[in-house]
Amino acid sequence: MEENNQLWDEEIDTIVKGYKETNEHFVCVLCEHVFEKGRIYKIDGELYDAYGAVKKHMQAKHGETVDYLLGRKPELIGISDIQQRILILMSEGKDDKAIAKEVGIAHSTVRNHRYKLREKEKQAKLFVALMQSLEEKTKRCIQQSNSGIIENLHDTATMMDDRYAITDSEREKTIKAYMDVNGAIKQFPAKEKKKIIVLREVMKNFIKDREYPEKEVNRILQRMYHDYATIRRALIEYGFLDRSDDCQTYRVKE
């Protein structure tokens, strides 16, 4: 079964629900199917609004989220093959005795796996807390560095590391090397830090709290660089621009 890699970027609560709501859509996060608000959908002879349609879609195509996740490769969610099988049987409401008989293991082994899975759940919570705390600390350390950082990190940066520790000197040299006096890009740099410097300059052409159709984004970027699609992708990748679920509009990410 094809994996939806973008699923892992969603919040835990959203993954559990199986869908998310935007200003204009309901989106199934398990397969990225989009349902437009204000539109009526006919499914199996019944009429549904976008909310009803995404719920019906979830039920018909994926079942419950637990069923979908247990259908993934076990290594993607950090469990063994036998733990996956035990969890599937648990989701079917079977007790330890029935699970032991069906899997062909001792009753005590089932209990031991239950214990290990509970411990894994606790560890996962602490690991998420650790990584979030690490990101916050890294951000503070970069901002407090005495190396002459040119500006605070943008809050939507996709990674907080030393690529963002940019000095005034680095900024000036990079802009001079890769951009002309009119702000056009002579060459898009390969190194991460230099990309970020150039992208920050590009973002001066966009206004917050405004939606840009893709054609307008392309026109703005095409004035600056011939391969505007590369710049557009980079602006999204590095957390400068946000793209709507239907890929039609863009806005400055906040």
Rank of each mutant, 00 (worst) to 15 (best):
I40N: 14
T158R: 12
Y228N: 05
D168C: 07
I105D: 01
Q84S: 10
A165H: 07
E214S: 06
R111Q: 15
D161W: 14
I149S: 15
E24S: 13
I12A: 12
S244Y: 06
G78Y: 04
I88P: 00
L89A: 01
I77G: 03
W8R: 04
Q123T: 13
G104A: 02
E119M: 10
K73R: 15
Y178W: 08
K176L: 10
E214L: 05
T22H: 03
I82P: 00
K120H: 14
A98C: 03
E10P: 03
M159H: 11
E254P: 08
I79S: 05
H57A: 03
L126F: 14
A177W: 00
A184R: 15
G148V: 06
I12H: 14
G71A: 07
H226V: 14
E102H: 02
E64D: 15
I149N: 15
E136Y: 13
T109F: 04
K20A: 03
V16N: 09
L130H: 11
E211A: 08
R233L: 08
Q123F: 12
D245K: 08
K193T: 02
S169V: 05
R111T: 12
D227T: 08
L76V: 14
A190T: 11
Q83I: 07
D44S: 14
S133K: 06
M179S: 04
V202R: 03
I166H: 11
Q83D: 09
A98L: 09
A165S: 12
Y164Q: 14
I185P: 00
I88Y: 02
E36A: 11
R243D: 03
Q187P: 00
V29M: 04
N182I: 13
F35H: 02
L199I: 04
D180G: 07
L30I: 11
K56P: 02
E24K: 04
I150A: 12
E75M: 10
K125N: 10
T167Y: 00
I185A: 10
T167R: 06
L134R: 13
Y225D: 00
L153H: 15
Y115R: 12
Q132L: 08
I86V: 14
L241A: 04
R200Q: 06
Y115G: 02
D67S: 11
V198T: 04
R118W: 15
Y41D: 08
Y178F: 15
E10G: 10
Q248F: 03
L221W: 00
L7S: 13
L221T: 02
R39L: 13
K204V: 00
D245A: 11
N112I: 09
R219M: 06
F127L: 13
R223V: 04
F127N: 09
H57W: 09
K194H: 10
N205L: 05
E92F: 01
P74M: 08
I88F: 02
H226P: 01
Y19A: 04
M159V: 14
Q59P: 07
Y68R: 03
H62T: 02
I236M: 10
G148K: 09
T156N: 15
M58Q: 15
W8Q: 02
G71P: 00
K186H: 05
Q144N: 09
L153P: 10
M131V: 11
T158P: 06
D209T: 08
R39M: 07
E211F: 08
L241C: 06
E36Q: 15
Y19G: 05
I77K: 02
E151N: 07
V66D: 00
K204A: 03
G93R: 00
Y212C: 01
K194P: 00
